[in-house]
Amino acid sequence: MEQTSVKYGKGFRVIAGNSRSQAAVMVIEPGGREGGKDNFHKDSDQWLYVESGTGEAIVDGHTHALRPGSLILIAHGERHEIRNTGNDPMKTLNFYVPPAYTRDGAERPAGKAE
């Protein structure tokens, strides 16, 4: 069993995980963005939950509004970008199945366990 507390800081940080799934937190400042037209996870699905703030997710060219309580699934291979369109930091809790990143936040090559 693994247990941790969700604490938001700056940027992106992996907070827990094992060989089959992982959790990470992300804070995007007002006007900021993460990802882009070439951003996708080769093998991992990403669940993104918005804790606070507002923004939008652009997934395979389609724009979806994000607000506190929003939960979206970005399937592996879907190109995506997350934008903060509000005036406050947008805090998200993310789950990747299987893990998409190493413990230090580097992107994991497809099919490679840590």
Rank of each mutant, 00 (worst) to 15 (best):
R33I: 00
G61E: 02
R103K: 14
T92E: 10
Q22L: 11
G35S: 01
A65I: 11
D88A: 15
I15P: 06
A75G: 09
G36S: 08
E29M: 12
E34G: 13
P99Y: 03
F12P: 01
G86T: 01
G11C: 08
D104C: 01
T85D: 04
R20E: 13
R103H: 07
K10A: 14
A16N: 12
G55M: 08
V97N: 13
T102E: 08
H64S: 11
G105D: 09
R33C: 03
G9K: 12
L93R: 05
G36W: 06
R79W: 01
A75C: 10
D45C: 04
I74V: 15
I15W: 01
G53F: 02
G105E: 07
K37N: 12
I58M: 02
G31M: 01
L73T: 12
S70R: 02
V59K: 03
Y49P: 04
G11E: 07
E114C: 00
T63G: 00
A100G: 15
E81G: 05
I58V: 15
Q46V: 02
N94G: 03
H41Q: 10
E114K: 10
G111Q: 08
V97W: 05
A24P: 07
T63F: 07
K112S: 10
G61F: 08
E78C: 13
P89G: 09
V27C: 08
G86S: 07
E81M: 12
V97D: 06
N39V: 07
Y49S: 11
V25S: 02
G32C: 09
R13E: 14
A75W: 08
P109I: 06
G53Q: 01
P68I: 10
V59P: 00
V50D: 03
T85G: 05
V25Q: 00
V6P: 05
M26F: 09
E56V: 09
G77F: 02
G55L: 09
R83K: 14
R13V: 00
G32N: 01
I82V: 15
R83C: 03
G11N: 08
M90G: 02
P89N: 10
S44H: 01
A75N: 12
Q46R: 02
P68A: 13
E107L: 13
E81S: 06
N18V: 03
A110F: 02
K37I: 10
G11Y: 07
A23T: 06
M1C: 08
P99T: 05
G17C: 06
S19Q: 13
Q22A: 14
E78S: 15
I82R: 03
R33L: 10
A106L: 11
R13N: 13
N87Q: 13
P89C: 11
E81V: 09
G31E: 00
I15E: 04
G55A: 11
E81F: 01
N39M: 14
